[in-house]
């Protein structure tokens, strides 16, 4: 039986804010990261835990103006089943389906994935590629942080000690295309070796791409954007020479590491090859 830190289960958001304002707490949502950490004695357990599972303010999937908004407590199962996600951001549903299996998908949340700040967090590249905004709240009020700025360093987020992640806004852009690909270790219950999200705007498959976003996980200390590769892709048509240039640029700009799951060489090579394939599929050649 593992360590059992003190936990408080507020029933309202303002109650939660008040607790956070008094003392630092480690929030727990679906528990799929925190309980692994405590049981596995991976680092020191938190002194105080804030159980946010009952905060209904953090639930729900809705379209709000020009954005698809997911409450931080939206589970992967809810993402997979949501007609709104299927309509406006099917890549997110696809990503959710690659995480764990039924047990994890029923408990793991998009907010937990973001706040846990693992460089291998499967949805995080998608948040970056879609220019998602993370809405944070505290007694001091609410503020938004873009996904590109939310993970400043290894296992860190932009959250202040008294803040909670409330919801995630995905701007809906009419002509945007989004692709997701995870290279994992097996077909379920797998942590990624490389995870990639690619977004662009364009009229159809062959027209030049605009506003290209290429984000990757498991290849650096944080989820990252591949800026040099984006520059190659921006304004280019998805043809073979673009794909070749983008793939080699990506291989050059990534600096992954060897670890228990894979090797630096493989990650670099496979990221480039997966990107090449995504461009090729988009171009239809």
């Amino acid at each position: 039986m593992p360590v059992e830190p003190h936990v408080t289960s507020p029933r309202t958001l303002s109650e939660a804010y008040a607790l956070l304002a008094q003392q630092p707490h480690r929030p727990v949502a679906g528990g799929t990261d925190l309980l692994v950490q405590i049981t596995g004695e991976l680092g020191d357990p938190p002194d105080r835990v804030l159980d946010i599972w009952h905060l209904d303010e953090l639930r729900g999937i809705a379209v709000d103006g020009d954005a698809l908004v997911l409450g931080a407590l939206t589970t992967y199962t809810e993402m997979r089943r949501s007609p709104l996600v299927a309509e406006f951001l099917p890549a997110l549903s696809e990503a959710a389906a690659t995480i764990g299996a039924a047990q994890i998908q029923n408990r793991g949340t998009i907010g937990g994935n973001a706040a846990n700040a693992s460089p291998a967090g499967d949805t995080l590249p998608l948040l970056i590629a879609c220019d998602a905004e993370l809405v944070l709240g505290s007694e001091r009020g609410e503020r938004s942080v873009t996904a590109g700025e939310f993970w400043p360093e290894y296992r860190r987020t932009a959250l202040a000690a008294d803040e909670l992640l409330l919801r995630i806004r995905f701007p809906m852009v009419g002509d945007r295309q989004v692709r997701f690909r995870k290279v994992g270790t097996r077909r379920a219950q797998a942590i990624s070796k490389v995870v990639m999200a690619l977004a662009w705007r364009g009229d159809d498959g062959t027209a030049p791409w605009r506003d290209v976003r290429l984000a990757l996980g498991s290849v650096a200390a944080t989820p990252i954007r591949a800026g040099a590769t984006e520059a190659v892709l921006d304004g280019a048509s998805p043809d073979q020479s673009t794909a070749d240039r983008a793939a080699s640029t990506l291989a050059g700009e990534l600096n992954p590491i060897d670890d228990v799951r894979s090797s630096a060489d493989y990650r670099r090579a496979v990221a480039a090859r997966v990107l090449h394939r995504l461009i090729r599929e988009a171009g239809g050649w």
């Binding site: 097996r186 077909r187 219950q189 228990v260």
Partner: peptide, 16 residues
Amino acid sequence: YLNDRLATYLIPTSLD
């Protein structure tokens, strides 16, 4: 052994 947890020592699931 680096693969000293079930998250890192992998065996086939029903899908594999």
